[in-house]
Design a binder for these strands. Structure first.
Lengths: 156, 156
DNA sequence: ATTATTTCAGACAAATTTATCTTAATATAA
DNA sequence: TTATATTAAGATAAATTTGTCTGAAATAAT
């Protein structure tokens, strides 16, 4: 049974990690291949590739086939893109109108018993996702302030 | 692909709704049967029954077999039980130590790129889950201030 | 004791999510 | 234009979550 700790689906986790890594490399002028992404992000290669396909269609990242191909993001673009856009691309819409108890609709007029308790938390979550850019995350990662895989999980 | 909106697993949703309904009936001195719970909470009967088995083992609710049997909760108990305990019983431990990007461990020393962004939100979520009692939720439901199913989804 | 009513337990099934594999399409370089 | 390197796409498979069914166990009333 799933844990609440899993804020995002695996698809989203892989997508976010991949984009952060691609951006971090683009910041250094490098286009990067799926194998490298999968390794550095500690994610399954084929599954990640499929997710990157989606993100490419949504114009969140660029892809180029063939030798010297791979993925990248313009710096301008990574300053525009928010976490919420990636989540939207991968997990679809209806990101914020969900109900903790699964009501098809849940609002102040006809709330589930937990609605009020979640209002503030949801609001903050939404704000955070919609204001945090990939540039911020990639910069933090590049400076070594954060990591994408535990050292003991990187293939050597 | 799963939505972030699904704060809880279906198991948790059903468990929470069932407990709230059982409590609301116990407040009125009524022991209540699984069929009634499933109907009033708009949840699948057999699946809900299984979850109630778990909650019974965790002493969150009482069950009684046979005629005049069913489920209930002492008022004293529903004032003690917090949402977090139900989530724990159904989805297990490691409720709060999860990482948004799936790191096996994620903390201020070695954070994922999104760690900082989630600290406050997680803290609030935790606080809310650990302070809200079933009594509060059941009372609110009993007074008609909140609902467990959309009217258009109740079997008539 | 027997019968009816209920939860309990475990096997089974369906749906969804996660993951892999294989082939096609595309781009580069020589 | 051929060979090579790469992503794209789609079929398939495995794992997990969600859901059902059937019979057993327990309880109460007669």
């Amino acid at each position: 049974m799933r844990q609440i700790e899993n804020m995002f689906s695996k698809s989203c986790e892989y997508g976010l990690k991949a984009v952060i890594y691609i951006a971090s490399q683009s910041l250094e002028g490098k286009r990067i291949k799926i194998d490298d992404i999968a390794e550095k992000a500690g994610s399954p290669r084929a599954f990640t590739a499929k997710i990157l396909g989606t993100l490419t269609k949504f114009n969140i990242i660029n892809s180029l086939k063939g030798p010297y191909g791979g993925f990248d993001i313009e710096i301008k673009r990574m300053k525009e893109i928010k976490i919420s856009e990636i989540v939207f691309a991968i997990d679809g819409d209806s990101i914020y109108n969900g109900c903790a108890l699964g009501l098809t609709e849940c609002n102040a007029q006809e709330p589930c018993p937990m609605h009020e308790n979640f209002v503030q938390i949801r609001e903050e979550l939404k704000k955070m996702l919609e204001t945090t850019t990939i540039f911020e995350l990639a910069t933090k990662f590049n400076s070594g302030e954060s990591i994408l895989v535990r050292k003991d999980r990187i293939a050597s």
